[in-house]
């Protein structure tokens, strides 16, 4: 079985993010970039398939050369190989443009299963897995909190607001996973060392059958044209309890005053 795990480079949540006013993309100089934490659940699930069903797992990233450490980081968990799509024409793509590039990069590989994280920690649109599946004409079993593979059949528990749906489909398929699915391992020292020499292929859009009419900032259908920092918050009222819980009276007063109760 062949498994592909698309990953994303995101600004560190703890870092101070800036948007470059010229092209309205994240200013990567200003903030540390990391492997999206949600991808760790996808990588862990792929590793389990590797260990249990001898799956061959390839990580895929769309992003500039400077994002290569993120591919190596993904490989350090024990994945087999990497593919990176590097092309200036991708810069500024919206989620659907990114989906087009990812879909065509996936189509250039052989695979039975694609495992996404359900969202990225920066944009959080959650659109990419379903859009990729639509472009490829495949089922998208998203928000998986549990998945099982039996031959060419896949069963997924799709999380929603009230619980989950148990769904069945056949492979090949696209899934996205939520954090409930597993507890990601840490990369081992051996894994980190081995990642440095794992095969990593670099592709450009010319190598792939990409519909460039969707790709890049000039072709983004969703156009972000203004941005501002969130205004700072006024300091609130902080009270210290005397150890008896009596401060709860002041909190209750506040809740009543604000008409919450």
């Amino acid at each position: 079985m062949k498994v592909l795990v698309p990953v994303k480079r995101v600004p560190d949540t703890a870092g101070e993010k800036k948007i470059d006013p010229n092209d309205r993309t994240v200013d990567r100089e200003s903030v540390e970039s990391v492997l999206c934490p949600v991808n760790e659940f996808a990588i862990e699930e792929a590793m389990r398939l590797k260990e249990q069903q001898d799956a061959e797992v390839t990580v895929l990233l769309v992003g500039p050369e400077s994002a290569q450490p993120v591919v190596r980081k993904a490989l350090s968990y024990g994945l087999d190989a990497g593919v990176q799509v590097v092309d200036d024409a991708v810069v500024g793509s919206d989620a659907l443009g990114t989906a087009e590039v990812l879909a065509k990069a996936l189509a250039a590989e052989e695979f039975d299963l694609v495992i996404f994280g359900n969202q990225s920690t920066d944009a959080r649109t959650c659109l990419v897995p379903a859009a990729v599946a639509e472009i490829l004409g495949l089922p998208a079993l998203t928000y998986a909190r549990h998945l099982e593979i039996d031959g060419d059949q896949i069963t997924v528990h799709r999380e929603h607001e009230e619980g989950w749906d148990v769904v069945e489909s056949s492979l090949p398929a696209v899934v996205s996973v939520v954090e409930a699915i597993n507890e990601p391992r840490y990369p081992s020292f051996k894994g980190i060392m081995a990642a440095k020499s794992k095969p990593l292929e670099v592709r450009s859009l010319d190598d792939l059958d990409v519909d460039t009419s969707r790709v890049g900032s000039d072709n983004a259908a969703a156009i972000m044209y203004e941005f501002r920092d969130r205004p700072p918050k006024e300091p609130g009222t902080i009270v210290e309890d005397d150890g008896s819980g009596a401060a709860a009276t002041q909190l209750a007063d506040w809740l009543v005053e604000k008409k919450f109760v």
Binding site: K233, E240, A247, A248, T249, A252, W254
Partner: peptide, 28 residues
């Protein structure tokens, strides 16, 4: 969390929350 709190109570939640429940029940 206190930096973004509109109202904060520095205290043991196992003291404060039961008391809050009691207060809110009384007011209801």
């Amino acid at each position: 969390i206190f930096q973004i709190a509109d109202f904060g109570v520095v205290g043991d939640l196992y003291k404060v929350v039961p008391k809050l429940i009691e207060e809110l029940e009384a007011r209801k």
